[in-house]
Amino acid sequence: MLEGKFEEASLLKKIVEAMKDCVSSCNFNCTENGISVQAVDNSRVLLISLLIEKDTFEEYRCDRNITLGIGLGSFSKIIGNGANSDYLTIQAEDDADTLGIIFEDKVKDKISEYNLKLLDIDADLLEVDAMETDATITLPSADFAKICKDMKTLSESLQITVTKDSAKFQSAGEIGSGSVVIKPKTDIDHPEESITISLDKPIDLSFGSKYLSDIIKATSLSQKVTIKLTEDSPGVFEYKLPSGYLRFYLAPKFDE
């Protein structure tokens, strides 16, 4: 039996919102340590890796490993019915064909219960090994989202170049070109505004703007995003959860 209680429904809402436009359905793998998901979009360009560790939950138990096949659009509709501040409990028996979703209002004496039909999903997974990283950038997630949106107005590609003391985001298209350069910054009063850049090798990579638009839907999950880049390799974009992460692996674009 699986039972996981979130202190606030808003966390699961944000996670599902960040995933549902990239993949329509995926398996949630539940173990005694928490819940993990690996899912790849139809074009096999963007991979989502989610880990919700046990400590994220107010209460958590999972007696036996369970795989829950979930349609994210349907899941999103149901969890949208709860208030952000509600407790949200997900519940499944071993071999269940439905997932129980329970909202508890913290003020009113009100409990709402829903059942989501589970799917049988035959997903082929990719072997994502620990990758070497040439450059790591950590910046406010809202700043990264704005850069991606602004550059998307110019081109379907975003070029990221990283040197020792700066990261440059640039796009060039039919109407013109643009660039944003960020530099490391320590803000003691507002640590969430700090920017760090660490570099072993200079980086010059391009990514598809439309996939970056999907990635930045995770912005509300974390004040910061960490971007790990390696030349000629997929980029990793990580949003930390209170305990765990939502990570995106994005295949780069290359010169033809």
Partner: peptide, 14 residues
């Protein structure tokens, strides 16, 4: 123009 690569070029299937 640039060509989009696929993750399967980098990661093997399990």
């Amino acid at each position: 123009s640039k060509k989009q690569s696929s993750l399967t070029q980098f990661f093997g299937k399990t």
